[in-house]
């Protein structure tokens, strides 16, 4: 198996010279092709920033990152976006309020140079469990779960190999979360996708991933197998504390 995502000594910064803030410090991780890898930590731990650095949304970084063996520089080209796509946290903010589902998906397909846009839009909607009836609706006519399905369809449009998931269900109700997580699992096995998933909810990460990196204050504290995590086998105090806080709530 080859490596899908490899990150070494990544540092990410925000802000200008005098109030520069380092959001990620010296992070290294690698994700195998077809694997599902989690990033857990509390708010402000830098877990989402890693995703932003990979996609180019956080332009101030150093270190090295490579996707499927291709080293990334500071400029991303279209072939990168055909390989890596992202699903955002808040489905209420990630869809343009004035664009219908059809516009969102057609534009994405056109940008990637697909010809058979019409058929593909229908196929994408079907893939994410929305019928053709949803095609011409606007975001305000959709529920949170339906919006997130549209966002997933948009991410799938370029037929990527890697999906970056930034807390894809934290804004949703638990019953809807279950539907979305099941959908993501199905899509992963159907399309052979690689997941890099950020979440603050250990149970969600444990359900979706095989391995996870625990982050605190911008640093990766530990990379741990989910089986070990479930068994509570960790030698890091912070991981133990996090596990304890989550386990307490699952009494």
């Amino acid at each position: 198996m080859s490596t899908a995502i490899s990150i070494e000594n990544l540092n990410v910064y925000f802000g200008e010279h005098h109030d520069l803030f380092q959001a990620v410090k010296n992070a290294s991780l690698s994700v195998e092709q077809g694997a599902s890898f989690g990033l857990v930590g509390e708010s402000g731990s830098g877990k989402s920033t890693i995703l932003k650095a990979i996609t180019g949304l956080a332009p101030q970084w150093d270190g090295s990152m490579s996707i499927e063996g291709n080293t990334l520089n500071h400029k991303r080209d279209r072939s990168f976006y055909k390989t890596v796509q992202m699903v955002f946290q808040d489905p209420y903010a990630s869809l343009h309020p004035r664009h219908s589902v059809d516009q969102v998906l057609s534009e994405t397909l056109q940008l990637h140079g697909f010809r058979d846009v019409n058929d593909r839009v229908n196929k994408l909607l079907e893939d994410v469990g929305l019928g053709p009836a949803f095609r011409f609706r606007y975001p305000h006519q959709l529920s949170g779960g339906q919006r997130q399905r549209v966002a997933i369809a948009r991410a799938l449009a370029p037929e990527p190999d890697i999906l970056l998931l930034d807390e894809p269900t934290s804004a949703l109700d638990v019953s809807v979360q279950a539907e979305i997580l099941n959908l993501l699992s199905d899509l992963r096995s159907e399309h052979g996708l690689t997941f890099l998933m950020v979440s603050h909810d250990l149970a969600v990460v444990a359900h979706m991933c095989e391995r996870a990196a625990v982050m605190q204050k911008g640093e990766i504290v530990e990379v741990i197998d989910i089986a070990d995590m479930r068994a509570g086998k960790t030698n890091q105090d912070y991981t133990a504390k996090l596990l304890d806080a989550s386990a307490n709530r699952v009494a």
């Binding site: 638990v174 979360q177 279950a178 099941n182 969600v204 444990a206 699952v250």
Partner: peptide, 13 residues
């Protein structure tokens, strides 16, 4: 429908 930390399952209800 909640993912359980203590008992893994393939699909959520």
């Amino acid at each position: 429908s909640l993912p359980r930390f203590d008992e893994p399952r393939d699909r959520l209800q």
